[in-house]
Design a protein around this nucleic acid. Structure first.
Lengths: 161, 161
DNA sequence: ATCATATACATAGCCAAGCTATACATCCAC
DNA sequence: GTGGATGTATAGCTTGGCTATGTATATGAT
């Protein structure tokens, strides 16, 4: 089986192939593009309502970039800001049902567009991809936890972490 | 333990985790950023000298975008254009030794920056990632072949990395 | 209580990377 | 040699990213 390249090389290859796959995906899902918005929305969905600074940290973007993205998402009706009674400087940002629906629709469309390229994958390879995605997600989420060390026990919602 | 999500869902998750990983990588390798340039250079390395239109197709970007990227890379001395005697409209674009060195350096730095996040991965997971990268690369390259159907037998084939 | 500092976000202004539309140059068929 | 096809370049726009800085609120020391 695997010929034990070392992890260092594998990570380099991973990033490289990721960039290329990103382009394939971007072109496959023409018109429906704006990865940054989907990423932001996705973070909001997984965290529940949070303040802007936290969102920036979790999304790994600067605070001003987060401000821009939030503006776009609000304009589309995909998220909402509600003022925080306890601190007038901040507002809590949360996805709306419309936002969640839009995200699901995008993911569906994107996957459908990529499907033809992967349609004839052997079952074993499908399973490998599935496990790899799980591994990567776990690591990425670990770094996000590091990035936002002390989340104030945010509002009512679950915040599964 | 294949949970047997279907391929459609796996692809959606893959793209999603890719976007997040891209942000992690971008922030980990601060300063050294310009993924598009590296992607372009990487394509050139794997194909040998090609004309601009082919490069655009293989990189999955528009022709004007390729023009811009090529300009930047030439300015950095990482690629060279040599005029094609047979067709005055085009020039052949090829990476320079400096470009190849820069690419290797970037990949090294990037992988090093990501390494801490993955340092404690079990060997089995490392192998899973390795195989997943191989699978993805194969599929991505298949789409690239589709994107640029009839390439004139391009010189030396250097391994993509 | 007041004032100073720290915090949270917004604004300004820049740049890169992507796009479409279009112009220009060259090739090829006739 | 002219006319349409082809290959790049240019123009002009949008978005997403950044740093630096401004502004409002909170907080802590006195």
């Amino acid at each position: 089986m695997g010929m034990a390249s070392d992890l260092h090389d594998i990570l380099g290859d991973l990033v490289s192939v990721n960039h290329r796959l990103t382009r394939v995906a971007a072109r496959a899902a023409r018109g429906t593009e704006s990865p940054a918005l989907w990423r932001t929305l996705s973070v909001l969905l997984s965290t529940g309502p949070i303040r802007l600074g936290e969102l920036a940290d979790l999304s790994r973007v600067s605070q001003p970039t987060a401000t821009k993205l939030v503006g776009s998402l609000v304009a589309r009706g995909w998220i909402e800001r509600t003022s925080d009674a306890a601190d007038a400087r901040v507002s809590l940002i949360a996805s709306t049902p419309a936002g969640e629906a839009a995200l699901v629709a995008w993911r569906t469309e994107l996957a459908a567009a990529l499907l033809p390229y992967f349609a004839d994958l052997p079952a074993a390879d499908v399973e490998t991809l599935e496990r790899a995605v799980a591994i990567l997600r776990e690591r990425v989420e670990a770094t996000e936890r590091m990035a936002a060390p002390h989340r104030p026990a945010a509002a009512t919602t679950v915040t599964d972490r």
